[in-house]
Design a protein around this nucleic acid. Structure first.
Lengths: 127, 127
DNA sequence: GAGTATTTTTAGATTCAATCTAATATTAAA
DNA sequence: TTTAATATTAGATTGAATCTAAAAATACTC
């Protein structure tokens, strides 16, 4: 975990390591408040500013992605940094990752523009 | 304009008519603050609460759509209520409508889910 | 019409996520 | 050490959006 951080140019401070362990071990979606509210097994709670600082650093160096969820009204951090799309399960009120291989998008009709990025949010539910 | 509102069950009050004229005549993107800041040729300026009330009523009855733009950090109201996608022109810092016929999406790989809605935001620029 | 009920509009307060500030603490470098 | 650079912090601030409770406008009944 320390090398992971340092490889990206971030000093492996206790706070950063702690959050990284919580958040980078497996793919998950979470909010900044989730981390603020999480004691993390330490005596002192992380300050809100620290949480936002660290999460946004992680985003800047590519350890996290973030996006704003209209449904939830806040920024969601996503430890899946691979290219993928999102499916909001309206039944479970939960955001799921969708492998891009399951969805094909063809933008070749869009002449005159160079598309750099495509964000797709689907809404649906189990059938 | 009055019938348009009443057909949707909204009384054609002067404020609603005024905003409808500003906003529903042709396809456009705008924020609530755009409307608040707009005098509208009237003596008294619209209160912020009224603007939000009316815009959200318009959304509720299908006269407008709205979506949150992460790039701009606020809710965008869209008088194009047809199914369409969005292209954020990173050069011009502007959101453009994309006719859905220009983009094909195939979600048939997503087995086990019924997709009710697809939102696509592309980022790009003129080539 | 007058009187009453309902709907709209309002200014200002409030909320809430997120950022900023400026001081303190920690770590690194000389 | 001493000094310089980086992290962390509590609390203030911002800004979009909503809420509140009162005033204004409109519709409805007799």
């Amino acid at each position: 975990m320390n090398q992971l951080l340092e490889k990206r140019g971030l000093r492996a401070t206790p706070h950063r390591v702690r959050i990284a362990q919580k958040v980078l071990q497996e793919h998950c979606h979470f909010t900044a408040e989730d981390i603020c509210g999480w004691a993390g097994g330490l005596k002192k709670r992380l300050s809100r500013a620290t949480v936002y600082n660290i999460l946004n650093e992680f985003v800047a160096v590519g350890l996290l992605k973030s996006f704003y969820s209209s449904a939830l009204g806040k920024t969601i951090y996503d430890s899946n940094t691979e290219n993928h799309f999102h499916l909001y399960d309206t039944d479970k009120d939960q955001i799921l990752d969708v492998d891009p291989s399951l969805v094909t998008v063809n933008t070749s009709g869009l002449k005159g523009y160079r598309i750099d990025q495509i964000e797709i949010l689907m809404k649906g539910r189990r059938r």
